[in-house]
């Protein structure tokens, strides 16, 4: 290829990449702008403080936080031990690879599948929609995300860490508890937040399981509202005052997910800076 031709190719490639980025940027900015423009005027304190009966979305916010917190803590109880057990020192490479594959599959499974599975189970057991059912289903959605991300956090630890702690006479358990957990902590927190972020924005898994209400959650056995379903249900009504709640909920959800993402990003960056 001649020199000028190569330069032209290079310029073309740059334009193509720039164009793709531009389209993405415009689409994303448009989305963001429309959510913010519609949501911001309605996101007043009164909207945040009143529940559905009072014309607000407090019930959905509290519901989402309960669902997200409950499910992510529950998921943590499964994901952390699983990720510990999948460390190089414990799991043979073939098992670790198989586990990663399965977790990736589960991660990629649409959450409506989890929702439907849990719903069938609930029908079979004769259980009503409730906060508890929502938490359990959402935890199922979160576990693969969290385990996979935590596995990566452990796997990216430098082998020297294990080598030198072992040379000092530490057992695998001691290394895990005293060294690996500490070294991987930022990565583990990121994994937790990643799963939380995914869970709190998820509508499909709780559609049939958590139910819907316009009150604050009373007990684990009551149905509970959530921000994604608030958007889903309220946007469909013709009444503009009800629609305004959907817009406020959408904006709030965006802020929550963005906040969690930014925090986990910042933690991940800090972690990589402190690693050698």
């Amino acid at each position: 290829m001649s020199r000028t031709r190569r330069c032209r190719m290079d310029r073309l490639a740059r334009w193509a990449m720039g164009g793709a980025l531009g389209i993405l940027g415009i689409a994303f900015a448009g989305l963001l702008l429309s959510v913010v423009m519609r949501g911001l005027p309605h996101l007043r304190p009164s909207m945040l403080l009143a529940d559905g009966q009072g014309g607000g979305i407090a019930h959905a916010l509290v519901g989402s936080l309960c669902l997200g917190a409950g499910a992510s803590v529950l998921a943590l109880l499964l994901a952390l031990p699983a990720a510990v057990a999948l460390q190089r020192a414990y799991a043979p490479p073939r098992i670790a690879e198989a586990a990663a594959l399965v977790l990736d599959l589960l991660w990629g499974t649409p959450s409506i599948v989890y929702g439907a599975f849990a719903f069938l189970l609930m029908v079979w057991m004769g259980v009503r929609t409730s906060l508890l059912a929502g938490i359990l289903t959402l935890a199922l959605v979160m576990v693969p995300v969290m385990t996979r991300a935590m596995t990566e956090a452990f796997r990216s630890l430098p082998p020297e860490l294990w080598e030198q702690a072992t040379a000092l006479g530490a057992t695998r358990g001691e290394i895990t508890l005293k060294v690996a957990l500490r070294q991987a902590l930022p990565g583990l927190v990121t994994a937790f937040l990643l799963a939380f972020g995914r869970g709190i924005g998820d509508a499909a898994s709780i559609l049939f399981t958590a139910g819907y209400t316009d009150r604050l959650p009373g007990s684990l056995m009551d149905p509970v509202a959530s921000l994604p379903l608030e958007v889903f249900y309220q946007l469909a009504t013709p009444d503009p005052t009800v629609q305004s709640r959907a817009h406020a909920a959408a904006l709030l959800l965006l802020i929550l997910v963005l906040g969690v993402t930014l925090i986990s990003r910042a933690l991940a960056r800090r972690a990589s800076r402190h690693r050698l």
């Binding site: 430098p158 020297e160 860490l161 080598e163 030198q164 702690a165 040379a167 060294v179 050698l276």
Partner: peptide, 13 residues
């Protein structure tokens, strides 16, 4: 039998 590695790695503490 103690060991001092070729590449040092401080433990996270």
């Amino acid at each position: 039998v103690g060991f001092v590695a070729q590449r040092p790695f401080p433990l996270p503490m």
